[in-house]
Computed example of a mutant assay.
Amino acid sequence: MQSLKAAGAALLAWAVAGWWWDAPMALMAPWTALFLVQSTIYRSLLSALQQLTVVVVGTLLAALAGVLTHNTVAAMALALPLTVLLGNYARFGTQGLYAPTAALFVLASGSYTGPDIAHRFLETLLGAVIGIGVNALVFPPVHSRRVRDLRAQLPLSSAELLHTVADGVAGGYDEEQARGWYDRAQRLTDVVTDLREARRWSDESYRVNPGLRLRRRAAPTPPTATWDFVWDQITEHIATTIRTLAEPARRPGLAPNARDALAALLRAAGDVCRSGEHTHIAGPCSPGDVEQVQDFRRSLARASAAHRRLTAACTGRHPGLASTTGGLLADTRRLLSALLRIAGPEAVLASGPFARRHADQSADG
């Protein structure tokens, strides 16, 4: 779509410039319009400001070099190094390339008079107006789909990984399996990074976008950035827990009842993640979300109960294993504390006293 819009803007600019100035070979207007149909309207405006600046400076430098040397080759030797240096200035971004290009247009035409220079400036301005106008009025770009896709992927991938680890803990696993789990956990943190980048891109596409009020929202607005922060913590604690399980010293340190409790905890935590896909932070639930919220709370209660059994199995009858299993208990407690934040304080109050105790322990550090 962006390519078609850019081509259409260039053709429109060429037609308008040719009709207005009776100059069918005018290049500055379509050239400017072509490169100002950017991925967001805000980026189009920013690029227009940058391009107008570099085109004006590049054109003036080329005209000055032509007047001083009266020779095209000598003028190029004088103007091009200066415009290339200007184009490398970081504030101009990718638009800096057009400073030497504008200088080449002027020197190749061999016209340095005031009216000719003013004509080029007006062409550039016309192209900028047409490029921005086409981008803003013809299917204004809004980039929210990737945010929704990643937002849906993260809970499901987390749930799938936790269920896989739970099955492995219950049936026995080796070091190679644990390393594979940890690699998958690291990829979850990469998804969070991608989500942050996609949200920045989406937020930019909503800036100075006149077409937003004309759009029908096909999907609900994605949660705020607080959701990203919560899932950043969850994926980090999942990775930490799996790293603890991958350590050779941890595997023989779990008694059968502790292993069963850990498997139940991880499986319930996976159910919390899956239910949390439909649960918004600290927001009122629509009638269609009531069942998902109830599933979330039941899964959270099962995870809390399993953590209590794991604590009793590791410290009640086997005090000698405390040094081995203490890290695992702390990792899973932090994971549950992060899961509690998915649905806000309401989930803590509804999930029983053990869940509230986890929240208190997390607050105490």
Results as ranks from 00 to 15, higher is better:
Q233N: 11
A261T: 03
A48G: 10
L78R: 09
L161F: 05
R217V: 09
D228R: 09
R179C: 09
G253R: 01
Q38N: 11
L46A: 14
R250C: 14
W20T: 12
V55G: 04
G316S: 11
V165H: 02
T221A: 00
S304A: 14
T221N: 02
R333S: 10
G171N: 14
W201K: 06
Q294G: 00
L212R: 09
A363H: 03
R217M: 04
G131I: 02
Q186G: 15
N209P: 10
A306S: 09
G180D: 07
A322G: 08
F139E: 11
D364N: 06
A102D: 04
D364I: 06
R43Q: 14
A355C: 07
L150Y: 00
T40A: 15
H358S: 06
P220I: 09
V67K: 02
S205P: 05
R341A: 12
L27T: 11
A48R: 03
A282K: 07
S205M: 13
Y112A: 02
R217S: 08
G58R: 08
L266T: 08
D203Q: 07
L265P: 01
A9M: 13
H70Q: 15
G110F: 12
L212N: 12
E346D: 13
Y182L: 14
I41S: 00
E236N: 08
R179S: 14
N71S: 10
W227D: 12
A108K: 02
A305W: 03
Q95D: 04
T324E: 12
R199I: 05
T241W: 01
A74D: 14
S111C: 05
D149Y: 06
R334A: 12
G114R: 08
A264G: 02
G93T: 09
L82K: 08
L104W: 07
L52R: 08
A26M: 00
P223W: 04
D174Y: 08
W21A: 14
Q294I: 14
L107A: 03
T59D: 05
W19C: 12
R200L: 15
A258S: 03
S337P: 03
V55C: 03
D360L: 15
A26T: 04
C314S: 13
G131E: 02
A13W: 01
A48C: 10
W14K: 02
